[in-house]
Amino acid sequence: MPLLKSTAITLKSRKWGEADRIVTFYTLRYGKLRGVARGARRIKSRFGSALEPFVYCDLNLFEKHNDPLYRITQVDIRETFPQLREDLALMSAAARMVNLVSAVTAEGDPSPGIFETLAGGLRSLQDNNDPLLTTLLFQIRLLGQTGFRPVTDHCAACGKEFPAPHPPLSPWGERREVRGAQFSPVSGGVVCSPCGSRRPDRCLPLSAGSLAFLQQALHLPASLLTRLRATGQVRAEVEAAIESYVTVVAGKRLPPVDFLAAEGKEPVYGLTRSPQVSL
């Protein structure tokens, strides 16, 4: 019955049985894991609010033989991100962050990069006044840390290298331009014009500005990321591309980032063939 200790961020918490909760965490040392907190819903529970989503905490749990669920023994709060509980827009944005982490990670596969990106994303939401842009940047960065990194420097379908700009447009030397580029969610990135027109799945238009934004969001150091801005066409194109890609990667449509604004509306982007795509 080994004891595990790690810092963690709560992703989800659902009711279980009479007064228990099953909680999903993303931990620094063990990656995503799920545990049972006995009596967590009782008024005098020792867990209190520590098992609520978006809480950054120190977690103690132990493993039970032949049981995939850990037993949660102690949770000490480090950060609660209180503003995320007081504003629906921030709450929805934070929900997308934890939902995406939950969708793209496997249990027991730690990645300190993903942990730091999630913690940084939740902190940025509190400090930033544009939750939709913060969430967009978070999603691009998170996908960039996983095997689902969007391809932006060569065609995701035929593999042809996009020509390097002359002179280089970015001090990071990564920005490459291509005429008639499109974003193919199923291919996992930008495709050249001939490949885009041949693909059976729906490709989304991507202007040169949108491609540059995507490349910079992937390559900029995290400390400079908050300087990135996107408005108008660039923002709409990148949002549509990433939303469609996230749907493909997650295998289902995640709850919308603008939770209440999207109420009753059909998404304007997405796949034309099938709402569920198996990977």
């Binding site: 629906l88 929900a95 939902n99 709850p255 209440l260 009753g264």
Partner: peptide, 10 residues
């Protein structure tokens, strides 16, 4: 309502 599960006012 649940932003985490997409449960809206409707």
């Amino acid at each position: 309502l649940s932003p985490l599960d997409g449960i809206g006012p409707a």
